[in-house]
Nucleic acid binder design. Structure first.
Lengths: 179, 179
DNA sequence: GGGAATTAGTCGGATATAAAACTGTTTGCA
DNA sequence: TGCAAACAGTTTTATATCCGACTAATTCCC
């Protein structure tokens, strides 16, 4: 009952034990087991966590990675265009870009022609950070490729893209309440 | 500049217009375009949003759906087992179950043998809610099936499950920082 | 039998996200 | 040309989520 705070290592070990039994327990998933939507969520969660582990010693949250890549590939992009490309609400981007600016990874410059919008570019430090994260992502992708296998990869990727494009087609599309 | 609050309808229309241009804009996705992890995230986001639209007139957030299904299929399940089955941290479940209890959709009964844990079951109202949400999910799944196509469905589902199981295999697995 | 370790659930602090409302700028059209 | 509509970005408010720490109950083992 007394429970002095566990050391970080002990706590991590306890958490690991708890989670290793995860899929065990003989749970009946019912229709969820055969539904694409549920399994898509599970796969995505697992993939994101694996990437987080892959990049845990880089000093930037993995969620920032797509943002940096998109800015790097599209220098001068506006915040709104970036939010659309990344499928996140533009209001979500404000604190993210504030943080990246504060860390000196990106520049936000006002556009002469249109004083409403910013042009986003990477700083040299941002480029360096992007290279480090890209290396992590490549390791992660090799792992995903290994699991999916070369024979099915192209088809699998095609179906993921098709889901994205056909599901958003012409519909309002509120953003992900993360469930 | 004056900008009196827009009507809900006008605001929704503006948001729709903004998002319909989403994938347009000629964005260069660079390596993201070919990476499974990024496309998995995009597809999952799109699927979740489509389900949210499908169930928008049901008075329950779509994220609650898996929880209800798992309780319905596994009456007497504990919170911890439920959190593992749903791939969410157990602390995430506390407010969710408080809410479901308050709405009279589930029962939490203390276990005689182990006074630490609860047994979760659906109430009749919970069963009814689950049936309504299941109907939405079935419509959503038919849409996903249409996009994926009958020829590839089994393979696609298999790969999603394989990703989940092999990525979590034996690893600590922190939960989704939602990025 | 009793203390140490483990487990079930909750709580507090932090981050990610979305929607709606807002400010300031630009555009379209009458 | 001038005003209404549209647009870019920010702020506010709310929810979902994780992690680490916590309380209380149980189990392990000497």
């Amino acid at each position: 009952m007394v429970q002095v705070t566990l050391s970080t290592r002990e706590a991590a070990a306890a958490k690991r034990r708890e989670r290793e039994r995860a899929v065990a327990d003989g749970i009946d998933y019912g229709p969820l087991a055969e539904w694409l939507g549920f399994n898509l969520r599970m796969a995505q969660t697992a993939s994101f966590q694996a990437f987080a582990r892959e990049s845990e010693d880089v000093d930037l949250r993995p969620g920032r990675f797509a943002v940096l890549t998109l800015i790097g590939r599209n220098p001068g992009i506006s915040q709104t265009a970036l939010s659309r490309a990344n499928c996140r609400d533009k209001s979500t981007l404000t604190p993210v870009l504030n943080d990246l600016t504060r860390r000196g990874l990106i520049n936000r410059t006002r556009v002469k022609k249109d004083q409403r919008s910013y042009q986003l570019t990477l700083t040299p430090a941002g480029e360096a950070m992007l290279r480090r994260l890209t290396a992590c992502a490549e390791r992660h992708e090799r792992e995903l490729d290994r699991i999916v296998g070369p024979r099915d990869r192209a088809r699998f990727l095609h179906l993921l893209k098709k889901l994205r494009s056909e599901l958003s087609a012409g519909v309002a599309a509120g953003q992900d309440p993360t469930g």
